[in-house]
Design a protein around this nucleic acid. Structure first.
Lengths: 128, 128
DNA sequence: CAGGATCCAAGATGATACTG
DNA sequence: CAGTATCATCTTGGATCCTG
């Protein structure tokens, strides 16, 4: 009986850590308060400049946005395009093909967020 | 022409903020380094005690785990069950039905994480 | 075992000013 | 416009000790 329990536990642990480590990897790269939001705005606006990007993401400071963009560029989600022919220099950010692999993640999160918001409202109504 | 551009931009902005705000809501509730991991372990182990939970989530401290669990309980993802009949008191945590609504989110993140890991390895290989 | 209390170090962030 | 630099602040997190 002891053995059965131990075996069951270690199988659970194995399944666990498999799923867990993949999600862990994902969170490591696209987790945090801003990354996904930036990626979404970038995907939906095609190409966009720094200040407009900042205006579209409520609450982000220039410094944080700048750092996040560098990070996203390193990981291949964003391309930074400099139009040197103009003065002052125009810089545009565009999303990459790779960022589009996040489609399902974004849809799942968006759907869940919508559902949850409705749910919260209902709860608030019920508790009155 | 100016008008066309303005219209296009505001439509983009509207779509943007819709998707964005839903994802924002989701991230607000289940974002952060630990929440989803805890939920996954909880779902896959049925019921589990504090210290075992801590052992299953590499790197989390007791204090942080404790805080996260309170948060998750408030939001309806976790149920805390106290078996007062035993001494010392046994406390078990179990996932709720509501936490199962995160299924698609977890699958999407897990799939993407797997894909990304493979991708990273390939890149590392290519750049040698 | 299941956590709470406390202290401290480190990182994240906001505000502001500045530059090419 | 597209950021960078600096400082003050606030939050987080780890480590440790403690208790019912």
């Amino acid at each position: 009986m002891e053995n059965t329990i131990d075996l069951a536990e270690s199988i659970t642990a194995a399944k666990c850590s498999e799923n867990l480590s993949s999600v862990e990897d994902a969170i490591y790269v696209i987790g945090g308060k801003w990354k996904l939001k930036i990626i979404i705005v970038l995907q939906e606006s095609g190409n966009i400049r720094f200040n407009e990007l900042q205006r579209n993401i409520r609450g982000i400071s220039a410094r944080v946005l700048s750092n996040e963009l560098k990070d996203l560029e390193l990981n291949g989600f964003v391309k930074r395009v400099v139009h040197a022919e103009q003065t002052p220099v125009v810089v545009e950010y565009i999303s990459t093909d790779y960022s589009r692999t996040l489609r399902n993640v974004i849809i799942a999160l968006s759907d869940w967020g919508k559902m949850h918001k409705r749910n919260i409202r209902t709860e608030a109504f019920l508790s009155q």
